[in-house]
Amino acid sequence: MKEAVHADRVQLTYASVLGIASTLGMILIAAGYVLYVFELLPSSASAADIAAHWHLRASELHHAVHVPSGWDWTGQLGRGDVLSYVSIIYLSASTIFCLAFIVPAFIREKDQIYTVITILQVCVLVFAATGIISGGH
């Protein structure tokens, strides 16, 4: 029997966006890290500084050295460590982009239950990303 594709249109839309988003994410992560560790751009804290403090709790390390966290890196995009951090932010936002893309697809399919579930899911992830609940910056 010949293999048939059983994924519906919404699922294929999600897969297309996810495929592009994840490939771009890997490229950005590699590029950001190279800029950072080879010191091709200045950094807020050097790798050696971070290594001297990485045994501390996250809150203690942030008192000792300045490294990007949450959204406090905006306005410092010229720094190597910030660019590496932004690539991780992008990776963490990829799922939100993909879910946001399928909301119109569910609406077109007149699938009310999954339109609501997907919108709620996007809201939960955006809420986490804002840092309101986790005391972010």
Binding site: S84, I88, A128, S134
Partner: peptide, 27 residues
Amino acid sequence: SINDTAAAWVYLHKGAVLPLIAVPSIA
């Protein structure tokens, strides 16, 4: 991918993600 995205944002806001450690691990 959805559940870990949600938790990852909390770790990012608490400053518990260091690219220096995370990137070689991912790669």
